[in-house]
């Protein structure tokens, strides 16, 4: 009873100069992606009293603190809308992005015991950690719905943009997350750099303030940040302000190039991952 299928033939070679990305293989491992995502979600709130409640509570508390500090005390310009809904429309994608970045940057190093003992396309690891953040992201949308009801924000046609915006956010998060997961595997310094970077990055993104508040000659700097277009996009979609198409387009282009660079860099590191993590 010899089982040899002609189909699965693998050739093991030293790493080449230009890594190839085998998307078909990643697709073959989609069940593993599902299981790792599921594990991350499941494990995260195990043995906590509130359980998944934390996924709700975290953005809510942030919303309260930001509204109190930046809305009430600092009285930041919120383009004429109530500050809580203004800030939350930005906080929603930002929270997902920063969580994704922090979790995925740790993901490869955290999966060292897997990487050293089993083969699978390593890209699955940062993908799964971002997948798990996506669940929290979904939950935090309920707060937005609550705020919209509370402030009687009408359901505009522009809300149809949200799914596309979500896709764009996920895409940028994938790029940045993958890049930093590989960087952190290669250079552990990024364990300290990333949390710091995330904080700075938030202030460089119009999350708590309006992009309008930035002097016009500095606005181009703000636009270099792919998250600017995304955050502005969410605001326009929720609050019905004019949509900045060029900003969105730039975000898409930046996200795409980031993604390509990230995946290539990841593949480059991947061949030695088992030896360095």
């Amino acid at each position: 009873m010899r089982r040899v299928s002609q189909g699965s033939r693998v050739v093991v070679l030293p790493p080449g100069r230009w890594p190839r990305i085998d998307w078909r293989e990643i697709w073959q491992y989609r069940e593993l992606l599902y299981f790792l995502t599921w594990r991350d979600v499941k494990v995260r709130y195990k043995q906590t009293m509130l359980g998944v409640g934390w996924a709700f509570l975290q953005p809510f508390l942030k919303l309260v603190v930001f509204s109190a500090v930046f809305g009430k005390l600092a009285r930041l310009d919120s383009e004429g809308f109530p500050y809580p809904i203004f800030v939350y429309a930005g906080l929603l994608p930002w929270q997902f992005f920063s969580e994704s970045l922090q979790r995925s940057s740790q993901s490869v190093v955290g999966a060292a015991n897997l990487i050293r003992k089993v083969y699978f396309p390593r890209l699955i690891i940062p993908l799964a950690s971002i997948g798990a953040c996506l669940v929290d992201f979904g939950i935090s949308f309920s707060i937005l719905a609550g705020l919209m009801m509370y402030y009687h924000v009408p359901l505009r046609i522009s809300l149809m943009l949200v799914p596309a915006l979500v896709l764009l956010t996920v895409f940028i998060a994938l790029g940045v997350g993958t890049l930093f997961s590989a960087l952190n595997a290669a250079y552990r310094d990024f364990r300290y750099i990333v949390p710091f970077m995330v904080q700075i990055w938030m202030y460089l993104t119009p999350v708590i303030y309006s992009a309008r508040a930035v002097p016009a000659r500095w606005r181009f700097l703000l636009a270099l940040n792919p998250m600017t277009g995304v955050v502005n996009g969410y605001r326009s979609a929720v609050l019905g302000t004019a949509l900045d198409m060029s900003g969105l387009f730039f975000s898409l282009a930046a996200g795409l190039s980031l993604f390509i660079v990230a995946v290539y860099f990841f593949r480059k590191i991947e061949s030695q991952m088992a030896d360095i993590v």
Partner: peptide, 15 residues
């Protein structure tokens, strides 16, 4: 098992 890459040489695995 493809956990790590060889520095030199090649291996072919059928199955």
């Amino acid at each position: 098992s493809r956990i790590t890459c060889p520095t030199r040489g090649r291996a072919e695995i059928c199955g």
